[in-house]
Design a protein around this nucleic acid. Sequence first.
DNA 1: CTGTTAGCGCATTCAC
DNA 2: GTGAATGCGCTAACAG
Lengths: 340, 340
Amino acid sequence: MAIRLTDVANEAGVSLATASRVLNGSARKPAPEISDKVRAAAEKLGYFPNAQAQALARASTKLVGLVVRDIADPYFSTIARGVQRGLGDSGTQVLLASTDSDPTREIEAVRAFMSQRTDAIILSGSRGMSEDEQLLRLIESYQENGGQVVVIGQPLATTGGIQIDNAKTSENLAGELIRAGHRSFVVLSGDRNLLTSADRANGFLTKLKRTGLSAVDVIHGAFSREGAYMAMSDFLASHAAEISNQQLCVFCVSDVMALGALRAIRERGLRVPEDIAVVGFDDIPTLEDVIPSISTAHLPLEEIGRWAGEMVLSHGDARKMVVTGTPVLRESTEFFTRLP
Amino acid sequence: MAIRLTDVANEAGVSLATASRVLNGSARKPAPEISDKVRAAAEKLGYFPNAQAQALARASTKLVGLVVRDIADPYFSTIARGVQRGLGDSGTQVLLASTDSDPTREIEAVRAFMSQRTDAIILSGSRGMSEDEQLLRLIESYQENGGQVVVIGQPLATTGGIQIDNAKTSENLAGELIRAGHRSFVVLSGDRNLLTSADRANGFLTKLKRTGLSAVDVIHGAFSREGAYMAMSDFLASHAAEISNQQLCVFCVSDVMALGALRAIRERGLRVPEDIAVVGFDDIPTLEDVIPSISTAHLPLEEIGRWAGEMVLSHGDARKMVVTGTPVLRESTEFFTRLP
DNA sequence: CTGTTAGCGCATTCAC
DNA sequence: GTGAATGCGCTAACAG
């Protein structure tokens, strides 16, 4: 790559220092005439500051790393959009990494971001179990070196971020479903070691218990559309009898899983909500296009991302905020009474 | 940030150069004993190479910039996933920029990437009209300085990339619809200055003409779900008569627009496909969850992204490849004969 | 095979 | 207000 600041300085007949001062904000303001000359030279030569060199000379890189599980998942892509919006025109660039739910890859991503000396790292798809000691240590050392960490989802002791109160949200959601008339629930949860999944499932079960109810069953699948599809298919195959007896309500710990379950239910020739009701969690944009409309717990995903971005900019004083989702009952959970 | 290579070298009692050689691939291999000592020191101190410094000293940054219109749009997020997959474990990091369809922001994104000295830039949401002279000049200067450019969608004279043959794909799609029995078409196109949109609409119209047919109407809306929703709503309101007369088939130049149109149609109380057939373009993953299943032209989005990523790695000899979509007729275009 | 040295491009003290 | 010099952390000749 060519055209260095030195070239611009020469072209303008000034010193390197002066050129630097005019082309980038500096306390000392060069004379207007000089400034114009330098700017003209830069324009003429097509100068572009070398961000790497600047980063080296300054302290900051104006880079923030965003870790997601899968950028093609609407949950994460919506958050990603929010983050970019939150960063606005601050000139901060986003470095993206997808982990595919692989803890190893998550660590690699953080390592890579540390190498890039990103000013901040936004973790949005972390497992969140404290067992990830390696990750925790990594993050701590990043923080010790001045790195900022914003976590979306689980709180992480040493970091700020947007915590999602999954348990409470699920409790509220269960409450609404019960109020709507439902009594027979099945919980479709994700991987057992995914804190998000566990919290949502447990919150739901807690509310049931407190109301004197209990889940007909709690099943597990991968925290994905396919995982839910398979788990639901298995369940339907082995519980045909119970299903025809009553209107079950299946609580899926994420909308993406709800969509997988929905497909399994349909393939089985069952109707939603007449035969089986389905609820999700997250309120991803995709739901707008699904019929029947899917009940869920609404999370302001894009805003959450935006807040994360803004926290980064405001050099987030390790601020923590808590978001509780809002139950939204739609067609997929309309209650039907069965005649015996 | 702390812990430099120098520190590691001191700790290990070797020279800076040696430390560098063992910690990063070099032609010259230090002795095993020395290597172990250095690695141990690095591990102990928690050393992380400073990517900025490395980039400065080497030539390459191992960074690639990805420009999309909106990362929350399934079309782009799927491509983004592909790109990441294509880059695999090459250690190349992805810098993400969203333009919101604003040419200015696209230019800013490219500028930013040039400043970051990304080894390559992948343009996936470009307007593609040659009027963007500013962008073109920018890209040329980037290339002159050794930057690689991969364009997804429109070809761009000086660059390689994955070209999507929108016109031909649309022609084929129209052909299939005609074969299925459809005769009355409406084309719902996007912004007039979006080449992708124009090519798709024109290809479709070309095929109609060649078959002795012509579109009942060609309407325009923003190249988005909302844009399509509004355009379709307007159309339905002002063409009620024609609609009840026959089974129209609405070709939307993208799936996202098809989803918007679908919503407008439903709100109007019309059925798809009985009253109106709907076709999209792209085959975004979202379609899997929509009922009725939407006919479309299938594009291997994730693979396209992957190819782009691979091109970057193989230092893509400005290779160009052309992809033609495959018509996929599903429920949304089932043909119904009207009784007079 | 290992160590020394000179930049990579820029910001920034320090003199003038 | 402007210029010369130093260093950011690292790689790559170049010597030894």
